[in-house]
Design a protein around this nucleic acid. Structure first.
Lengths: 347, 347
DNA sequence: CTGTTAGCGCGTTCAT
DNA sequence: ATGAACGCGCTAACAG
């Protein structure tokens, strides 16, 4: 700060050191053209004055805004995913704030608005890059941001178009871990109440479910699509319980479906896991609150967010896009597949 | 856009209309100094070119950044509040995005870092105003932002110092609705497992709990402090169940405490609500997933966020701070206080 | 009243 | 190591 409380500017430093602004600028940016002695003096004065470049001024000269953006299209918002997003953002922050990057957050109503937001952000240089979430099949977003020249990374990829780098969750491996777990517990007939199949991650899970089902020799593996809603969870569970022979295990794609389903199972006076074992894709407080506690997949959303931020920053730094990193969720086995004999594994 | 794909600038408009940049600027900002005809022409050309002022350039001239900031100090983060924050932010967005305001989000480790973040944001003109959440007693933040001259609003106020406007939740009224509900169901002895008493909202709840307890003629109203943790929920519930006479109703300050408490109640082979009725302050998916479903207070976090954003924008627009707006959470009565005879009121 | 010129805000960069 | 121009828009002072 300058004596009069004003924000210090380059001019102030230059005057104090007795050189031109240009020289001060070179010194501060480590560019040649200043003597080592002068450079040291400039850096010292800058520190004393607590000088830092004005972001707006830098932006004007084409430098970045030190901000990354995240847009969530509200259509994808079912209660069950809110926690995930919040943790994703929190995780991103741990990396971003360390490098003094900000996170600009926006909620919109549709993918079109989302793309429009990217266009505006890019146009106004408000962000240096963005994170794409919830990719669908034939998603227009990767191509759109690529066309804008807006650096982007897919969280939960990979991008089928292959145009964007991504950090993703290995849905296939996760599904395999579920299936192996069920097979070890002696199950032969499993039904998978999946979410909207147009979502890329759901699509990947379905493929893995069916392939793994065959590979592990399950007798019956059926995929039952839902729209992620409680109503669907209820009616689909109802119908699957009427099947004969009945599946001995149900895999739910999210919390909402699982809660609705467990309710139906109870009303049918079936025991969990005695008659029906239950697995939920996402580990939430509900999983441990219910009795029996639900076996669930835990993905470390915060760690995932940190990875996402890290790769995006690398991309912004001009480092070659690492391509594709993966995280594998871990299966937290609880009473809904184990029965009472084993301890509750999780908070 | 200009023909060559560049971002259009004021210069381009001025050239096309055949006037100076200054005149164009006056026209675009509705200032006197240009003829009506010229103004129309300028606006028309600006629209054709899809011109918009470069935010960085405006920021340099002292205009705002059209961004508001929200910092969450991670220490206050227990799982139960994550959902609330996410909904708060989403709600704020509905209002902010309509006026093309961005939301800058930051997670830090302490209140000190939080204040440092405000300092930096203000210094760098990155935000026009901020939203303070999770106020504690003797909280240094209101004074800090006031000293910085950073416009701010307290979400979940009021600010005891009275220096900041706020939008708040009427904790006292909410607690009264709980107590009335319990009184109507015939309860006389209630224990309130509250959270950290240093948090302002907890403090308000405690006061209301004790006052209302007297006013409504409860025989025994005890406040039992916890740190919001599952461990505390467990041990404090254990101890309260040993009291004689035993309370007939327990009020939990959040989801985590409630889940831990319900577990203890079950292990004591006590029936809910037959032996012990349970109320939770925050309505979450857990409340409807459990059996019996838990009676809970629902605060419309998204609507709350919208109010917060609205008042903050008014403040930024120079309108006199409305002072203080309140929202009253509504009690969602479910089986944990009603028993089985009445329908489940939740989604 | 209509419009112009000059200079500012802040930092970067190119000739000199 | 420097002066000058630039990025983009706003505005005080000034001229017709």
């Amino acid at each position: 700060m300058t004596a009069d409380g004003r924000r210090p500017r380059l001019r102030d430093i230059a005057d104090l050191v007795g050189i031109s602004e240009a020289a001060a600028s070179f010194a501060l940016n480590g560019k040649p053209g200043v003597s080592e002695a002068t450079r040291r003096r400039v850096l010292e004065v800058a520190r004393e004055l607590k000088w830092s470049p004005h972001p707006a001024a830098r932006a004007l000269t084409g430098a970045g805004s030190s901000t990354v953006g995240l847009v969530i299209a509200r259509s994808a918002q079912d209660v069950g995913t809110e926690l995930f997003f919040h943790r994703l953002m929190t995780g991103m922050q741990t990396v971003l704030s360390r490098r003094n990057y900000g996170l600009l957050f926006q909620v919109v109503g549709s993918v079109e608005e989302e793309i429009e937001t990217y266009r505006r952000w890019q146009h106004d240089q408000r962000v240096d890059g963005v994170v794409l979430v919830d990719l669908r099949r034939d998603d227009p977003r990767p191509a759109a941001v690529a066309a804008l020249g807006l650096p982007a990374i897919v969280a939960g990829g990979p991008d089928p178009g292959g145009s964007l780098p991504s950090v993703s969750v290995d849905d296939a491996a996760a599904m395999r871990s579920i299936m192996r777990h069920l097979r070890e517990r002696g199950h032969e007939r499993v039904a998978y109440l999946c979410g909207t199949a147009s979502m890329l991650h759901v699509h990947r899970r379905i493929e893995s479910f069916e392939r793994t089902g065959r590979e592990l020799g399950f007798g019956d593996c059926r995929t039952l699509p839902t729209d992620f809603s409680a109503a669907a969870g209820q009616t689909v569970t109802e119908s699957v319980l009427r099947k004969r022979p009945r599946p001995t295990a149900l895999v739910y794609d999210n919390e909402v479906l699982a809660v609705a389903g467990v309710d139906v199972i109870r009303r049918h006076a079936l025991r969990i896991p005695g008659d029906i074992a239950v697995v939920v894709w996402e580990d939430t407080p509900v999983c441990t609150a219910l009795r029996p506690a639900l076996t669930a997949l835990r993905r470390d959303a915060a760690g995932f967010g940190a990875d996402v931020a890290r790769v995006l920053l690398e991309l912004l730094a001009g480092e070659p896009a690492t391509g594709h990193e993966e995280r594998v969720p871990s299966l937290i086995a609880r009473a809904s597949t184990l029965g009472d004999e084993e301890p509750d594994a999780g908070p």
